[in-house]
Amino acid sequence: MPAILAKKLGMTQRFLDDGRVERVTVLEAGPCPVTAIRTNDVDGYEAVQLGFGAVREKALNKPKLGYLKKVNASPVRTLVEFRDEAGELVVGDTVTVEAFEVGQKVKIAGKGKGKGFQGTIKRHNFSSGPKSHGSHNKRAPGSIGASATPSRVFKGIRGPGQMGGKRVTQKGLTIVDLLPEQNLMLVRGSVPGSKGDTVEVRTDA
């Protein structure tokens, strides 16, 4: 089960040999140095830790920089562990897009776009009220409970609040093309996050 970290570059379209047009998201995937291997004997679980996002040394704090120097890894901004994905990897190896294949199904996780504080119409698809004849209920959520009993608002009521900005996993995406010389991966469809965000790519077994 290959896994890799990638940066979302944006969306474009790809013309296939049969004339079809594929809407794809372009990801700059890797190279990701292996910075640690977790084992059941030592850590109680199996995982591989990958680094991504080359930066200057002065951009990192001393503990992180010292840790990376200890494992002979170049300075990277992001460290992520992937459970049960170690396989034959060892510390010092580098994971690239060549670990994947065209046509392979993957799932991609990242932080979705934040929409800020939104009302119930945008956040929960509520219907709006009448907009004429002096209506005072154009976008109000309406009643959310009785007054005397239970004299409180139940937890979980769908109301206004922060929308988006949470971790999202998109499953069932297909790799359309791989460009190893440029570390690029083209995936059919949309991917969580904004341009420039770091995402996690795993095979979707």
Rank of each mutant, 00 (worst) to 15 (best):
R167E: 10
E22K: 15
G110N: 08
E101D: 13
A148M: 11
G116V: 02
V168I: 14
V76M: 03
A59I: 05
N125Y: 07
G172V: 10
G87D: 11
A54E: 14
G164V: 03
A99S: 11
P160S: 11
A140T: 09
G145S: 04
T169A: 02
T12K: 02
E81P: 01
D204K: 13
K115H: 08
N125L: 02
L179I: 10
P63V: 02
V201F: 15
K107E: 13
R83W: 14
R56Q: 10
A109E: 09
C32M: 06
V24T: 11
D17H: 12
E28T: 09
G66N: 12
G165I: 08
D41L: 03
L27I: 07
L186W: 06
D41N: 12
E85W: 13
S151R: 13
A148K: 15
M1Q: 14
K113V: 02
S74C: 03
K107N: 12
N72P: 00
I175Y: 08
A54C: 02
T198S: 06
T203Q: 11
T169H: 05
G112S: 15
G189E: 03
K105G: 02
S135V: 08
T96R: 10
L68K: 00
F82C: 09
S190H: 11
L89H: 06
V191Q: 10
V42I: 12
Q13R: 15
Q170Y: 10
K111T: 13
V42P: 03
R158Q: 08
E57N: 12
R83Q: 13
G164M: 08
K166D: 07
R202A: 05
E88D: 15
E200G: 04
P180E: 04
S147M: 07
V48I: 10
T39A: 08
G87M: 11
K195V: 14
G66E: 00
F82I: 09
A54I: 08
D93C: 02
I157R: 14
V97F: 04
A36V: 01
V71P: 00
A6N: 02
G145F: 01
D41T: 12
E22Y: 11
F117T: 08
K8G: 06
L89W: 05
